[in-house]
């Protein structure tokens, strides 16, 4: 049974000319205890899709316009700000990309964690300290007790990211949205963190929405991926199947762009990503697609395919058999 089910999620940014669509998600599901890789280029809307769950966007001008976001059977999209407060942190944990910017430089790193423990779990004083130490140990931070009173600038990037993970799991959420948590770190630290996240998932039965732009990173880690382009999922399926037999030309190009070692940044794909809002009709990828035909520019494809491996491409059979 799906823990998270997002349908028709529509995220817009308010501009002087009116709202512009950034994300228009057909569907995305995440099972209990599952780790899903949400992969896409910068600007594909993957981060906003993840943030839509807690509805905390980078600026007030970005907002959720419509759609349903069911978490454990309850539609978060219909909740008010006050009700959402009870969801944030408690049911959904969030980890951001930049560990340097995501911890307040003028507070010891233990402080926000203990405040969250007080808020979500009513732990105060010694109890909060003890639990904070336990959480720090859980995320494998060395010398946990002493670290509580350290300031962010005294910690390494990897340690800061672990602090953030500790904060995200402090209230024992069912879902963890990890927005490119490893991008800013070096290779070995990335691997350790990925392993830690996977451990936490298994141990707590927690679902993880792992957002990344790096297919290589998720290749070994997650069972299922969803590839995003221009604000929507264009292909989804078991990781092995998607990587081996991509059904969407975009995934194909993405794979070709992955460096041999499976790490590092994406190579550029010809052409530029077209913002979702500028696509009047047809397939969003058509303008950059080597397979594109006239009907691609006229008809918007839906996610379809055999079984769980589906793609939003009218010519997916051709793409598969090239």
């Amino acid at each position: 049974m799906a823990l998270l089910s997002m349908r028709g999620v529509h995220v817009v940014v308010d501009t002087a000319e009116g709202p512009r669509t950034l994300v228009r998600l057909s569907e995305l599901e995440l099972a209990e205890g599952e780790m899903l890789g949400l992969v896409g280029e910068t600007g594909s809307g993957k981060t906003l899709t993840g943030l839509a769950v807690t509805r905390v966007f980078p600026t007030p001008s970005i907002r959720l316009q419509g759609g349903s976001i069911e978490l454990g059977g309850r539609d978060l999209a219909g909740l008010g700000e006050r009700e959402l407060l009870a969801v944030r942190g408690r049911e959904v944990g969030v980890v951001f990309q930049d560990p340097n910017a995501s911890l307040n430089p003028v507070f010891p790193v233990g402080r926000p964690l203990m405040d969250l423990l007080g808020l979500h779990r009513s732990l105060r004083g010694q109890a909060a300290v003890a639990e904070a130490v336990r959480l720090f140990q859980r995320v494998e931070l060395p010398d946990a007790a002493a670290l509580l009173s350290r300031y962010p600038h005294e910690l390494s990037g990897g340690q800061r990211q672990r602090v953030m993970i500790a904060m995200a799991i402090a209230a024992g959420p069912k879902l963890l949205v990890a927005d490119e948590p490893t991008t800013a770190l070096d290779v070995t630290v990335q691997a350790e963190l990925l392993r830690l996240l996977d451990d936490l998932r298994r141990e707590a039965g927690m679902s993880v929405l792992f957002i990344t732009h790096n297919l290589g990173v998720v290749a070994h880690m997650v069972e299922r991926v969803a590839i995003m382009y221009a604000g929507d999922v264009v292909e989804t399926g078991p990781t092995r199947a998607v990587l081996k037999e991509p059904r969407h030309p975009y995934t194909r190009l993405l794979l070709e762009a992955v460096p041999r070692q499976g790490q590092g940044r994406l190579k550029a794909i010809a052409g530029t990503a077209v913002p979702r809002s500028e696509i009047a009709q047809g397939c969003a990828f058509a303008s950059r697609c080597p397979f594109a035909q006239d009907r691609c520019r006229a008809i918007e494809p839906a996610l379809e395919g055999p079984g769980v491996h589906r793609a939003a491409c009218l010519r997916q059979e051709e793409v598969l058999h090239v």
Binding site: L51, T54, V56, P58, T59, L85, A86, V87, R88, G89, R90, G93, V94, F96, D98, A101, S102, L103, N104, P105, V106, F107, P112, D115, L116, L119, H120, M164, M167, A168, A170, A171
Partner: peptide, 27 residues
């Protein structure tokens, strides 16, 4: 308030007044 560490606290359910008066004000 636009900085990541404030957004993170919001995303983790911290109260608006706590965020503003206890955290952001100090910055």
């Amino acid at each position: 308030i636009a900085l990541d560490h404030v957004r993170l606290l919001r995303a983790l359910g911290q109260k608006r007044y706590t965020i503003a008066f206890r955290y952001a004000l100090k910055n």
